[in-house]
């Protein structure tokens, strides 16, 4: 899955000369001659090759570190779930982390958001309204991210409903 998402990111950034190959079960990204092994390095390579997209890596040190974290998380956890339970664990982690921020790394869209969005879009697209409400924070985040113009062109917008299925009184039985 690493190579697929890398390819999508390359498309997102509108980079023409990028080659993505697999060597030894590891993904190799070649941008204008500059090679990188690994997903995180690959993504960062892509972003840095486009000076106009520098901000996508993060503006502050903290943001950059957070972007790094999320990209690492993608390749260590999110992209390689063997079962639905594993994916659910990842989703729960995401849900928890997104509680107090608009984007994964704070208040600005980063390539981390793009990567996670590209990975999860096919799943969220199939979610019922009930499931979307279960993952309220992910839903909110997804709705925000899909507003991005470039993503909107390549990915169908998912519909989120604001009316709650269950009153949020949090009362458990």
């Amino acid at each position: 899955m690493d190579n697929k998402v890398l390819g999508d990111i390359g498309q997102y950034l509108a980079i023409k000369k990028v080659k993505i190959t697999m060597e030894d079960k590891k993904v190799v990204t070649d941008v204008g001659g500059k090679k990188c092994i690994g997903f995180v390095s690959g993504v960062l390579n892509l972003v840095r090759s486009q000076p106009q997209h520098q901000a996508l890596e993060g503006s502050t040190v903290l943001q950059k570190s957070l972007t790094h974290h999320w990209l690492t998380y993608c390749t260590t956890h999110l992209f390689h779930c063997p079962t639905h339970e594993a994916l659910t664990t990842c989703l729960q982690y995401l849900e928890q982390e997104l509680k107090n921020r608009a984007y994964l790394c704070g208040y600005q869209l980063t390539i981390a958001d793009v990567a996670v969005y590209l990975a999860l879009h096919p799943f969220i697209f199939t979610w019922s309204y009930m499931k979307k409400e279960q993952y309220q924070n992910i839903s909110r985040w997804c709705k925000t991210v899909q507003g991005d113009a470039r993503l909107g062109k390549t990915h169908k917008a998912i519909h989120f409903s604001r009316s709650q299925l269950y009153c949020g009184s949090g009362r458990t039985h």
Partner: peptide, 30 residues
């Protein structure tokens, strides 16, 4: 509040603003 797991936290702590990241370092972290 944000939570940075180990490797990213190390990057964060050791990085000074304006310093350019070293792709080698990142590669080995990954």
């Amino acid at each position: 509040s944000f939570r940075l797991p180990a490797n990213s936290a190390v990057l964060y702590l050791l990085q000074s603003p304006g310093q350019i990241q070293d792709p080698e370092v990142e590669k080995w972290l990954e």
